[in-house]
């Protein structure tokens, strides 16, 4: 049986998701994700001719809001929850590494 996902794929996705995973975890997750994909493959193998695709679990479309201003929340209340703030703004560590 050929694997549905490689260890490299898992490492790549983990990096994109900013997850720090150990070598052991990589092995374990690769095996687990492979099993999940294997299961999905058995669903894919079904004959679904004539079955309409499901785009959303709810049978709803066009849920809208009128374009009317509602009160925002207090800035100070929000910023008090931030690790760091300055001049009414969120302060974050530098975004890109110096190059």
């Amino acid at each position: 049986m050929s694997a549905k996902i490689t260890r490299e794929d898992v490492a790549h996705v983990a990096a994109l998701a900013r997850l720090d995973v150990t070598d052991d975890e990589l092995d374990r997750f690769t095996k687990q994700l492979d099993a999940i994909l294997e299961h999905a493959a058995s669903v894919e193998a079904l004959d679904i001719d004539g079955v309409k695709p499901t785009y959303h679990p709810l049978p709803l479309v066009n849920v809208f809001r009128d374009d009317v201003v509602r009160p925002s929340i207090e800035r100070d209340a929000v910023l008090s929850q931030a690790p760091e703030a300055e001049d009414g703004r969120f302060r974050v560590t530098r975004i890109l590494d110096a190059e």
Binding site: E86, F90, R91, V92, R94, I95, L96, A98
Partner: peptide
Amino acid sequence: IHGAEYSLI
């Protein structure tokens, strides 16, 4: 952005 010490959002 390069060489910035921090950013305000």
